[in-house]
Design a protein around this nucleic acid. Sequence first.
RNA 1: GGUCCGUUCGUCUAACGGUUAGGACUCAAGAUUUUCAUUCUUGCAAUAGGGGUUCGAUUCCCCUACGGACUACCA
Length: 514
Amino acid sequence: MNRKTRVRFAPSPTGPLHMGGVRTALYNYLYAKQRGGDFILRIEDTDSQRFVPGAEEYIIEALAWCGILPDEGVERGKMAEQISERHPHAPYRQSQRRAIYRKYAEELVNKGFAYYAFDTSERLESLRKDAESGGGAFTYNYQVRSSLDNSLNMTKDECEARLLQEKHWVVRFKMPENRVVKMTDMIRGEIEVNTNTLDDKVLWKVADELPTYHLANVVDDHLMEISDVIRGEEWLPSLPLHYLLYEAFGWEDTRPNFAHLSLLLKPDGKGKLSKRDGDRLGFPVFPLEWRSPEGDISHGYREDGYFPEAFINMLAFLGWNPGTEQEIFSLEELVNAFSIERVIKSGAKFNPEKAKWFNQEYMRSREIDKIASEFALILSEKGISRDFEYIKRVCSLVRERAVFVKELWDLADYFFVAPTEYDQTVKAKFWQAETPEILNSVKEFLSRIEPFDKESIEHPLSQYIKENGWQMGSVMNSLRICLVGASKGPSVADIMALIGKEESLKRVERGISA
RNA sequence: GGUCCGUUCGUCUAACGGUUAGGACUCAAGAUUUUCAUUCUUGCAAUAGGGGUUCGAUUCCCCUACGGACUACCA
């Protein structure tokens, strides 16, 4: 069977997308693009209780920031709500597909693969409690279904009457008895499960006329012609049910291939990565800053200064590697290099240090114009404006010292503002009694240098210092204190050449008298 | 409790059944440097445990331990 690759990322809008979700979206995207296929964004909002305003917009914006643009599916505005050339399977929001699912649920009942259940939630709750006190767990399955309140245990007429009268019945899947379901996972290989360990899952509920995940997922994946499903590991236990659903509908020949991704784990200790870990350890777990409806603010990679390319690169390597020693990959390179078979089976502990390292690598290799324009923004917030060429030269001089653009100010403030204070401990180390006298001579020497560029300053200046028998360390560092005010920055010659002769001499003079 | 998935340096990971078990991050030491950095070199550090199969096991099988997910009218 040869069909077009179509994958979907199907988040639930119950909050901001967490970095594990972004990784799932990324792997889907890479997989599809490598095969010239489509990446579809579908919103699984079948749980009306847990809907969070703003979450869907957040998901769309976060993916866009990462450079993951859906070919089809939910987007801003109403574009994806109606069928069009670009959106042949619209709508892509499950709450807007309500009418579709009921028919499929009924089809399953009619074929004998499902049944109506009228048990109240109170009744099920107490059953659960009883089982718990006995050390076990209640499962609605082949052993108990005949003694519960469902259509299997009543006449057709009685059932139809109750269907009309009551408002809380559900459709449950009738899990077959003692069958071994054989499944294939693209990452994990062959998996077998006996149906006796499974339960009769709810597929559809009349209360809100909405399906649960399992039905909606299988129906939509089929209708949307999804060829491959790459999703989180939390879905692995329900894979047999999904297989059985494809079988019951008679869709086995177009059943997608499945791959289940392991979880992202917290950096220390045990368990999966959560929002709290970020707060506790000081790193973002969300791509973008998130303001909850209650007003809580969570950090985002974007706002913390990460480049989207670095973020994506880091994420790609959390659970996958190309098998070579190359670690820096653009999105395009990832598309070419990615392979689902090389995805790691075990969970990966997130390492914030390595995330910073990735950003640092991008800080060094990124086009200088991009770095400079981001820095120019920070400068203008401080009320500083300089020509772009100058900002660019400053950036290329200090970028290798920084991990984030926002660090550039502390690293290079003296290129824009003359020092007003001088670091006394550094001064105590290099400044000697004869230093003012020496600096006066140096200043006079500098004033004669023309042109005032790095090459014309560097060598002649050190020659001059040597000829006079002065201590190189003392003189150069004292000069630096005058220019910078602190013990930081590139070479003295670089600094002087960039700020210019006039400014350099002014700073030396002020430094001597300070 | 049950079902399923997993387990190589502290972390991310590499290794047709045959390697001195490799790389990256972190850390440490040294070199370079007029400062802070950078850079370079070196170092520390792992196959969870026990049984098999095999001439040979990180690799295949079983058991145990540990970790994780699931066990909702949530996804």
